[in-house]
């Protein structure tokens, strides 16, 4: 039984694609056959983050339009045999995603994959609704600031009313909160919302806290999902999130300043 996971947020620039790349790589590394789909037609980015931009021949829209079959469009990841990427089309727009077409592709993929990760575009328009329509799970990526939290809340409302599960009165989509770009010093100084603030507002299961980290940008530029950088805090945080998604109990990290920071302040004071 495959599961379809949508990575969504409403707001742009919060880390959806970074998260899609990291989670799909994490799931694949644990031995699950995983495919990650870029739904951001016209603003394709996932291929860059996954480092497969030079190998794109056919794309998602080609498959929907029967111009290519799935095997021609899927790109196997060079670092992990269990992971495939289905890139978005850069030359079309989001209207090319039809409900029937997307459904057919997801149906076909679910025959042979354990997890289908859908990287949603920003916004709540057609592309985003297509990405979430067939989802079983949703990872709502949120930054600790008010506008991101409100947009996530809006997206959660759409998830609970406009998805296939909602329309067929099936069991609702399982919703998870992933807090990204969490900057402990700024939270402690009151500039950013805390984990508790965000959870109070969104009342969601917390999948993970990804600390603000230079490693993310470095990894993106290099086309390496940040989860592969095991030295980095962000990479470890994503690995924790994958474990939690798979049902393991892992305590949350990166919620408070590291010891070093504490001593620093002590000595400075």
């Amino acid at each position: 039984m495959s599961r379809i996971i949508v990575i969504t947020s409403g707001k742009g620039g919060v880390g959806k694609t970074t998260t899609s790349a990291a989670l799909s790589m994490g799931l694949a590394q644990r031995g699950h056959r995983t495919v990650v789909i870029d739904f951001d037609v016209g603003l394709r980015n996932l291929d860059l983050i996954m480092g497969c931009e030079r190998r794109v021949v056919y794309d998602f829209v080609n498959v929907i339009n029967h111009e290519a079959n799935l095997n021609q469009a899927l790109i196997r990841d060079k670092r992990c045999d269990n992971l495939y990427v289905l890139p978005a089309s850069q030359t079309r727009d989001k209207e090319a995603l039809t409900k029937e077409g997307v459904g057919r592709v997801l149906d076909e993929l679910s025959q042979s994959y354990d997890f289908i990760v859908c990287d949603s575009p920003a916004g709540i328009e057609h592309g985003a609704t297509m990405a979430m329509y067939y989802a079983d799970d949703a990872v709502v990526v949120t930054n600790p600031e008010v506008s991101s939290v409100r947009d996530s809340d809006r997206m959660l409302g759409i998830l609970s009313s406009k998805s296939r599960r909602a329309e067929t009165n099936a069991e609702p989509i399982r919703e998870h909160l992933l807090l990204t770009r969490y900057d402990v010093p700024r939270v402690e100084s009151g500039e950013m919302l805390s984990v508790k603030d965000v959870q109070d507002i969104l009342s969601l299961d917390l999948l993970g806290i990804i600390p603000e980290s230079k490693a993310v940008l470095t990894a993106s530029n290099a086309g390496v999902p940040v989860i592969l950088d095991r030295e980095s805090d962000a990479g470890q945080a994503y690995a924790d999130a994958v474990s939690r998604y798979l049902g393991e109990e892992v305590p949350h990290r990166f919620m408070t300043a590291e010891k070093k920071g504490f001593f620093n302040r002590l000595f400075r004071g």
Partner: peptide, 8 residues
Amino acid sequence: TRPVRSGQ
């Protein structure tokens, strides 16, 4: 029984 989200 579920949270009423922004926009609903």
